[in-house]
Amino acid sequence: MTAPTAPTAPAPAGLTTGALARRLGVSPTTIRSWERRYGIGPAHRAPGRHRRWEPEDVAVLEEMCRLTARGVNPAEAARTALAAGSGPGSGSDSGSGSGPERSTARTGTASGGNTLPVGTVRPECRGLARAAVRLDAPEVARILRRSVDELGAVVAWTEVMTPALRAAGRKWVAEGERYVEVEHLLSWHVAAALRRVADRPEPLPGPAVLLAGMPSELHALPLEALAAALAERGLPFRMFGPAMPPEALLEAVRRTGPPAVLLWSQVTRTADRALVERVVRTAWGPQGARTQPVVLVAGPGWAGPRRPPGTLRPRDLATAVDHLEALLR
């Protein structure tokens, strides 16, 4: 008979402080500071071992991150998070008061890395970047909805969405594939928040401007932001999205007779000047009363002193909206 083997020690459960910091998008020092000042710490500690954060502990810290991102001071955020969750001394089980939003964030396993360096930005942008790193989809959606509703599409795009998107792009370029999931999550929710404003149940009256990306241009979010800003002002538009084929673009201009056409290019290689000149020359209407559109070229792809002849080049989203409103009014 074979002698029984000695039982192996069970693997330690829970997250280390470093792993938890990466998941939440904060520094380990911040977590230790919160634990020391506000009593937000692991409910169970084994003597002689590193701290291990169980799911209920993580849920409390996730709520702490959400509240501080919304502008709640840390002391009040800690009291609220402990009362709502299952932190030390709360007297509740791990499921009480969690709700669908917390459950979604707690069960996710991808960490997303450390923080997104967004620089000096609005608090909403900092909160958005932290939520994106945590892959906290409900919080990302909430921040974006509130930003658009309270600030308007132009300010929300310029001061909240764009800095966070740029930081996510810089991060995954520097770190490799590790941060692609953060950018994808953020981009999808940005598009959803903008589309929520741009989609109207009833068509807006009057002639509509035409919005499209150049044939090789795959970036659509700036066009989504422009559509949302136009919808806020009650200005009609037709959105054709990115990568509009040349002949389809020209045919759309001929068929719809827009007073203005805005063409987006994110990088210089997608800025097709010859095609823009063809759009400028495209006319419609009866003989003797034919009309041509005003063409706006927008985006970094058109940078440089020489823009296509017969076009306008707005410097930013707000200017583009003002130009289009003036043409429509």
Rank of each mutant, 00 (worst) to 15 (best):
P246Y: 12
P246M: 13
E247I: 06
E247N: 14
A248Q: 14
L250P: 00
L250W: 00
L250H: 02
L250A: 02
E251G: 05
E251W: 02
A252E: 00
A252M: 02
A252H: 00
A252P: 00
A252R: 00
A252D: 00
V253N: 02
V253W: 00
R254P: 01
R254E: 06
R254V: 01
R255W: 00
T256I: 01
T256H: 11
T256L: 08
G257Q: 11
P258R: 07
P259T: 12
P259R: 12
A260I: 08
A260S: 11
A260R: 02
V261R: 04
V261M: 05
V261T: 10
L262C: 08
L262R: 03
L262V: 13
L263F: 07
W264D: 00
W264A: 02
S265W: 05
Q266E: 11
V267E: 08
V267R: 08
T268K: 06
T268A: 13
T268E: 11
T268D: 11
R269S: 14
R269E: 15
R269P: 02
T270D: 14
D272M: 02
D272Q: 07
R273Y: 12
R273A: 14
R273W: 08
A274P: 01
A274N: 07
A274C: 02
L275T: 07
L275S: 09
E277D: 12
E277P: 01
R278W: 01
R278L: 08
V279E: 08
V279T: 11
V279S: 06
V279C: 09
V279I: 14
V280Y: 05
V280G: 05
V280S: 03
V280F: 03
V280C: 03
R281E: 12
T282S: 08
T282E: 14
A283S: 15
A283L: 07
A283R: 15
A283M: 09
W284V: 12
W284Y: 13
G285I: 09
G285T: 06
G285H: 10
G285E: 09
G285L: 09
G288T: 13
R290Q: 15
T291G: 00
T291I: 10
Q292K: 15
Q292C: 14
Q292H: 14
P293G: 14
P293N: 14
V294Y: 03
V294N: 06
V294A: 12
V295P: 12
V295W: 11
V295N: 08
V295F: 09
L296D: 10
L296V: 09
V297I: 12
A298V: 05
G299W: 04
P300N: 07
P300G: 07
P300V: 07
G301H: 03
G301E: 03
W302S: 00
A303E: 02
A303D: 05
A303R: 00
G304C: 04
G304Y: 00
P305H: 05
P305R: 02
R306K: 05
